[in-house]
């Protein structure tokens, strides 16, 4: 049986041991485009092999390990571009893996239980899924391109004027809130007869998604946005 024994990661630790202590780090590796076969490499060696800064990798890993971000991070532009790639990969995982998977469980549940209550649950999820897709599309099509321009281009780019990190942060919403509702409804209130296998799979998927979304929002709000604000300040000074 697995016990959650994650401790704060440092770059001299072996990556395989770290995954053993917190398997959620596998998702992080995937979002970084790092293969799961990490051999006997230390975190530091792994970062070198994939050309990712150790500081960034360790900071994000520690978010997954349940620790907060440091206040005074100094990420390079290259780091931040990698963060955006990471976030985009996460979006892909939500859009084409997690949400469809959860959707299929709910559809199966509805097939097995024709009660109108379950039908409502499906409707609830579909509405939520639509909202999430809007959020992801907005970030992929508006927010991230802005940050990429900010990180790559010189200050004369006028196309950037219509948007800012602050504007993004003001519109940034928690997309995991309704997921929380769904989990609570299933856990506390909605009465479904048996079907434990299916419901367990649904729960595990919900928990997996919820955790990753939680860290994802933290990365956007405590790494991407403050860094963007800093760059804007410097350029306008």
């Amino acid at each position: 049986m697995h016990h959650f024994t994650a401790t704060k990661m440092s770059s001299s630790m072996k990556m395989a041991d770290q995954i053993d202590a917190n398997p959620r780090l596998l998702l992080m590796l995937q979002h970084f485009n790092i293969d799961f076969r990490v051999s006997d490499l230390t975190v530091s060696q792994l970062c070198k092999q994939y050309d990712i800064s150790e500081a960034l990798f360790v900071d994000i890993a520690n978010l997954y390990n349940g620790f907060g971000t440091k206040k005074d991070q100094a990420y390079t532009k290259k780091d931040l571009l990698q963060v955006i790639d990471f976030l985009k990969n996460s979006h892909h995982y939500y859009r084409s893996d997690m949400y469809p998977q959860i959707n299929s469980y709910i559809l199966m549940l509805q097939k097995n239980h024709p009660e109108r209550e379950i039908k409502l649950l499906e409707k609830f999820f579909n509405e939520y899924f639509t909202e999430v897709l809007e959020h992801l599309d907005y970030e992929d099509n508006v927010a991230f391109p802005y940050f990429i321009k900010l990180l790559k281009d010189s200050r004369e780019d006028s196309a950037r004027e219509q948007f800012s990190s602050i504007e993004y942060s003001e519109h940034h919403t928690d997309i995991e809130l309704k997921l929380h509702d769904l989990k609570n409804l299933l856990l506390k209130y909605v009465n479904i007869e048996s079907d434990l296998d299916l419901r367990r799979k649904l729960f595990f998927a919900l928990y997996e998604l919820e955790y990753d979304l939680f860290v994802h929002s933290l990365i956007e709000e405590t790494i991407l946005i403050p860094s963007g604000v800093n760059i804007e300040k410097k350029e306008n000074a």
Binding site: E117, L120, L121, K123, F124, E127, L177, K178, H180, D181, L182, N184, L185, K188, Y189, V190, N191
Partner: peptide, 16 residues
């Protein structure tokens, strides 16, 4: 209840 959204509360109210 631990439920925030209107549609979530609807399902809660029906279950209860």
């Amino acid at each position: 209840t631990g439920i925030r959204s209107q549609s979530g509360l609807t399902i809660y109210a029906i279950s209860k």
